[in-house]
Design a binder for these strands. Sequence first.
RNA 1: GCCGGAGUAGCUCAGUGGUAGAGCAAUUCACUCGUAAUGAAUAGGCCAGGGGUUCGACUCCCCUCUCCGGCUCCA
Length: 641
Amino acid sequence: MDLRLPDQTVRTHQEGATGLDVARAIGPGLARAAVAVKVNGDQRDLSRPITEGGDFEVITIDSDDGLHILRHSTAHVMAQAVLDLFDGATFAIGPPIEDGFYYDFEVSDPFTPEDLERIEARMAEIIAEDQPFERVAMSRTEALDVFSGHKFKVEIIENVDPSEVGAGDEVTAYRNLDFIDLCRGPHVPTTGRIPAFRVLRSSGAYWRGDQDREQLQRIYGTAWASKSDLDDYLTRLEEAAKRDHRRLGPELDLYSFPEELGSGLAVWHPKGGMLRKIIEDHSRALHERFEFDFVATPHLGKSELWEKSGHLDFYAENMYPNMQFEGDPSYHVKPMNCPFHVLVYKSQGRSYRELPMRLGELGGVYRYEQSGVIHGLLRARGFTQDDSHTFCTEGQIQDELERHIDFVTTWLKDFGFDDYQAELSTKPEKAIGEPERWEVTEAALEKALETKGVRYRIAEGEGAFYGPKIDFHIKDAIGRLWQASTIQLDFNLPDRFDLEYTGSGNTSEKPYMIHCAKAGSIERFAGILVEHYAGAFPMWLAPEQVSVIPVADRHDDYAEQVKQRLRDAGLRAEVDLSQETVGDKIRKALTQKHPAVIVVGDDDVANGTVGLRLYGEDRDTRGVPLIEATNRLAELAQRPS
RNA sequence: GCCGGAGUAGCUCAGUGGUAGAGCAAUUCACUCGUAAUGAAUAGGCCAGGGGUUCGACUCCCCUCUCCGGCUCCA
């Protein structure tokens, strides 16, 4: 048969050639690295006979597909090890995931760290034994028999969609030695082809992700094409841990989470307060530039208001309970600002001439997040939204959306997030509003994204029940994605609050409403910034920009003068007057990641100069005239826009 | 909320039933120093909180709070 590739044709020697033959034929050198082949886009095992012709591709272990296969195979080995070691254990599913894999088990006792070590050791043995993975095809009835002792497998077999499997009633499994697992494959040829793996951690997980079903024990692991890839990955994990904003924040004296205060609530220290101020100032500046008006609303509102807005119906579990004095109406702390901005709109009759009306506020909100989901500043119970609500006519939607996209992308770029992607979420199953409204607004959102040249993908059915939306995911310095900005259409609140405006023909019209948060939450955004920059902020964001270090006491006065000059130039400068050595003070400034360090000694006093060192440069420049240093730093501290 | 792990000085951590220890930080004194830790001394703890077992609890048991890793959730 002929093996056709885009740039070559390869002929095999015999009918019934296997994947391995294909790999050899395509590239003799590739055969050793091959873990599977693709036939017309379908992944196949190396051992499977290939009877038909078509497009062939060798999958090597270091490719994305190869890693997927490797990790899936390693998951099998993990299940094999667990079933070996734990009597009565049964297994559920074990898919590859980004950077690794997991497998879910039901066992009598949760795994301990020692268990994980034993499992890892047993896996290493299985790998050393180089057991072949053998594909077994069987009927569904046979499969039910083979897996009769394993209830989750039985459930899977019973639910297999024949059309999905493609082979009618056939299901496949993979066997190595006496271990067999339900699996579509393919796998690496033998367990010995797993070059590097690690068992990482275990945790609870629900069967089929359903809170009401069995709680299983999940073990996470990772596998890589080489030992050095594994080491790189483990180093990446450490690097990520070092950037953790929950650790860096207190270390840099930005904020803390006092136990006495309550879970999910932070206090901001002076430096963190400065960081917030910088972020908030920039938020206000951009709101002004994009022609938003500022409003201010309280933290509480009558429960009646939340009933009208619908929050008490559909958001109650995230709201703090009502509070009430005897004889007074009941109040709720606000989880969102929207109803308040609606009240501003409603405070008088509106004309089409006033629209679009863009109302912005840095609004503090409180949401009762489940105790298990709180994550530092990234998921907190109290936070400040840089929130805005735009009321406009149908004809203004397009322009407004484009303006909001400009706003959001300017905002993200200013903070150094050049790499972001948008997600357009469309009508979910449970939704309100006429279908035409959805169609029109989804099209408007899509057109706005295209006009503005924003890379986006469509998240089908992921919209809020009240309208479609665009979420922006930003990529940080080590490649992680974070959800930040959001632009959402809302058909709900204008209805619930009977919003209207008088049109040009003296008709009563209903306005459209656009929710938009640029940072999402100031706290969360600050947390992401800490992780993105690993605490070493660009100069304009740094709470403390310049540390001035006198070499000896006799230079203190000059250091004060230098500080004053820097401050006059708008820089945030402090003098380190502590009775320490120069080396110690520099070390402190650098561990606090101050962008600039200035050292002044005898020569500087005599010549009106300074020694200048910028963060990230391990050399200093001496004898820089003060005026030059000031100008240079002031330049570096410029706001991006 | 669920499963598991953890909580000892401001921080990082020792301490396996007999009323607690180190390093860093802090304070004081000396040193006055040119690019990542000068030296000495001092002070600092209701061992997360509450209850129980015990002659005796940081240590064992129960409850609560807080944190960590996941799951679920995330208008």
